[in-house]
Each structure stands twice: as structure tokens, then as C-alpha cells.
Computed example of a mutant assay.
Amino acid sequence: MDINPVTLLPLSFDVTLIFLLLIIALLLIIVHIWRRADKRARMLFESWKRDEYARWKTWIQEEADARADVQAEARYRDWQRWEEQKIRQDAIRRSHSVIRGKITEHLIPWFSEFSYHPSDARFLGSPVDFIVFDGLSEGCLKEIVIVEVKTGSGSLSPRERSVARIIEEGKIRFEVIRKE
């Protein structure tokens, strides 16, 4: 058996040209489709990137706000404790001053600064501390003195100033009330 080689017929120039144009057209279509896909992929990537950025930015802001709230709350509690301690210390200091003043008011007739006989003094406490009937214990009343005792840098209250003003103006009198 003899084998005859198959001979390829030479393609005509027209068929080759059509085949070549077809390949070029297919390549152009593939390039066009590839460019559209690439453009779509870039758009999707940019959209995803914007969305992720916004999501992360929101999350970071929320975390920062939450941490700031925790820190602010802690600082507020510290400030509140500090202020409460300061207020308590001030209240204790004032309480000591008031108690010292009340004790001094009651004991002042026995101090050397009190220039009247202790038994001539009558404690009122309000609106003035004492009325002193100077000389009454010896049977010889010389004068009546209204005494207000102040300790430290204390000053007269408005009520005490009004009593002092009335006394200075001489608007003071003696009255007897009889009940039958």
C-alpha cells in the first residue's frame, strides 16, 4: 500500500484575507470586552473602596465617641469625688467655726476681754448675744449694754446691723405689760 500524501490546496487570497479579518475582528471584540470588564471592575473596586472607607470611618468615630464617653464619665466621677471632698472639708471647717463661735458666745462673760461682771450678762443668742445690765449684781445699775460676740473675721449680719442702727438712733424704750 502506497500512501499518498495529502496536499493542501493553497487557500485563495480572499479566504486568507477573510480569515485574517475575522481574527482581527475577534481580537478587537475581545479587547473591547476586556476594556469594558476592566472599567466595570475598576468602578466596582472604587465603589467598594468608598463604602469600606465610610464604614471604617463610621466605626472609628463611634469607637472614639464611646471611649470619649467612658473617659468623660471617669473624669466626671473623679471631679465629683474631689468636689464632694472639698465641700465636706469646707462644711467641717465651717461647722468647727460655728461651734467654736457658739461656745465662745456662752463662755465670753468669763473671759478677761469681757469688761462686765458675768452675773450682769443675760444670754439671748439672737438677734444679739447678750444684754448686760452693768452694775445690777452690785445693786447700782449704770447702763444697759447690748453685746454681740464675733470670733475670727466674722462680721455683723443684716439683722444685727439693723439692731445696732436702732440703738444708735435711740429708738429704744422700756415697757411694762400687766396681766390680770
Rank of each mutant, 00 (worst) to 15 (best):
P5L: 10
T7W: 10
T7M: 10
L8D: 00
L8F: 10
L9D: 06
P10Y: 04
L11E: 00
F13P: 00
V15W: 12
L17I: 08
L17A: 12
I18M: 13
F19T: 14
L20W: 13
I23G: 09
I24P: 00
I24Y: 09
A25T: 02
L26M: 06
L26C: 07
L26P: 01
L27M: 12
I29H: 09
I29N: 11
I30V: 12
H32G: 15
I33H: 11
R35L: 04
R35P: 03
R35I: 07
R35W: 05
R36V: 07
A37W: 05
R40D: 05
R40E: 05
A41Q: 13
R42N: 04
R42M: 11
L44W: 04
L44K: 11
F45Q: 12
F45L: 13
F45Y: 06
E46S: 08
S47R: 15
K49C: 04
D51E: 13
D51W: 09
E52F: 04
A54Y: 02
R55M: 04
R55G: 12
T58P: 01
W59R: 15
W59A: 13
W59E: 14
W59G: 05
I60A: 14
Q61D: 06
Q61V: 07
E63S: 09
E63V: 15
E63I: 15
A64V: 12
A64P: 02
A64N: 04
D65R: 11
D65T: 09
A66W: 05
R67V: 05
D69N: 08
V70C: 03
V70Y: 05
A72E: 10
A72N: 14
A72S: 11
Y76F: 13
R77T: 08
D78W: 12
W79S: 00
Q80C: 00
Q80A: 09
E83F: 04
E84G: 11
K86D: 13
K86V: 05
I87S: 09
R88S: 07
A91Y: 02
I92R: 07
I92Q: 04
I92A: 02
R93Y: 03
H96M: 12
S97T: 09
S97G: 15
V98E: 15
I99D: 08
G101T: 12
G101A: 10
G101F: 01
K102F: 00
I103Y: 07
I103L: 08
I103V: 14
T104G: 11
E105R: 09
H106Y: 10
H106A: 03
H106K: 14
L107K: 04
L107Q: 01
I108P: 00
P109Q: 02
W110R: 15
F111A: 10
F111W: 03
S112D: 08
F114V: 01
S115M: 07
Y116S: 01
H117P: 00
S119R: 03
S119P: 02
